[in-house]
Design a protein around this nucleic acid. Structure first.
Lengths: 231, 231
DNA sequence: GACATTAGTGGCGAAGAGGTACTAATTCGC
DNA sequence: GCGAATTAGTACCTCTTCGCCACTAATGTC
């Protein structure tokens, strides 16, 4: 590649229409589900992600919390950006730029609006191309970050059984995990604490409830992992 | 948390000023450095990140490539979004929203403009608060992604010695690594291939040059790693 | 030719991985 | 009441991987 004449920068900050598109994820019926809202009559697709423009002076995660709350009834406790998208594809509000934000909500949280519904990630209805893109990125971000942030714990109520935790990990990763190894690794991480409660869920032995209570870990950082490349 | 009356969504996509702020990283003099450009006279800080508004129809990474090229002379080969920021803090162009993008450039690539300079991450001059924020996030993203993407390879020329590769990893991670373990892990990952070339760098035994040539790996995904949490 | 310097490898003990198979505590069916 | 089914949780074994030390290899310096 060779040098080219350069155009001057700082032409001026251009005005663009901006949308915050929220991907609310939650485990529903043994599958990871996305919250969609019914599109207004006349729209090309029948469903869209919850979205809105950020209000002036409002941060982006703040906007996402407001948007999620207006659909779900409660604000999710965890947000993470998927990234900004200006792919030129169609957006329901014709926004030039979309900021995608993943929000995580535990199972069993009710939906406030009659116009909203959970759809399993695997069987989504048709969405505007931009929204489709945002959802795909959101799912991929969730999978990539699951062992770097407490994502899984935000998809569960405050108290949960270890089997529930393992199930959420399996949903996020899309593969089965080994019970003994899972618990051994969890034990060593000092991320959870047992509570006094036990839950009897139909058949079988009752399970002890745990809560997320990360201890400060001795920073025993180990070597480089070359086997985590996604590309 | 209880249900609250909801405000209607889809008020309309609001117009906002948008900037793409680019953090070009490169190893310079044994340290990770950021490319800054001299601010125009009268600005509150003397240096800024290279930034501009995206042109219409231009993707965000595309804009970042154009901006980086105009300062550096060549376009970096690798871009990754840091995220969108609407923190209300001061931006040199008073943009409402900044999209931060990290670009990686190998050492030894010349700077085209006299108004640009490399600054080690550890000793940056004063920057506009928003830019300071973008740089901090960029560094943190780079550290977090280093073992999920071939970041380190993009900070090196096409052919490199394993010691150089290890040095880049040490720069990114901010800690020393063990030579034998590093090479053993690298060997097992099938990410690099030896070339026929050797390089004699002053003293010591000459080193073989390698190139980045990732083979399709057997997807031997292993257990969950709870020890990678950053929070 | 001795020495310093950098590259690269072999091997060892400890820790971690996955797997099997066990024990524990409950509900269900009879 | 009692065994079968079901789910929770653990003990142990094996194989791999990790960190580390110590060594060999090939060059420049004096």
């Amino acid at each position: 590649m060779r040098d080219r004449p350069t155009t001057p920068l700082r032409s001026s900050a251009r005005r663009a229409t901006l949308a915050v598109d929220v991907v609310v994820l939650s485990p529903q019926q043994e599958a990871l589900a996305v919250l969609l809202v019914r599109a207004p009559a006349g729209a090309r697709e029948r469903w869209t992600l919850p979205w809105d423009a950020p209000q002036s002076g409002e941060g982006l995660e703040e906007a996402a919390a407001r948007i999620a709350q207006s659909v779900l009834g409660v604000a999710p406790a965890f947000f993470e950006q998927v990234g900004a998208l200006a792919d030129g594809k169609r957006h329901p509000g014709d926004a030039d730029v979309s900021v995608g934000i993943v929000a995580l909500s535990p199972a069993g949280v009710g939906i406030a609006t009659a116009d909203a519904e959970w759809f399993p990630l695997a069987s989504l209805p048709a969405l505007a191309p931009r929204h489709r893109n945002v959802v795909d990125r959101a799912a991929s971000v969730a999978r990539q970050r699951v062992d770097q942030s407490p994502l899984a714990f935000r998809l569960l109520p405050p108290n949960f059984t270890l089997s529930e935790l393992q199930s959420v990990y399996e949903l996020l990763l899309g593969r089965r995990l080994h019970k003994a190894s899972f618990r051994r690794a969890l034990q060593a991480s000092y991320l959870v604490e047992p509570t006094d409660e036990w839950r009897s869920e139909g058949r079988g032995r009752p399970a002890q409830l745990f809560k997320y209570a990360p201890k400060k870990r001795r920073g025993a950082r180990r070597g480089v992992r070359f086997d985590l490349f996604t590309e």
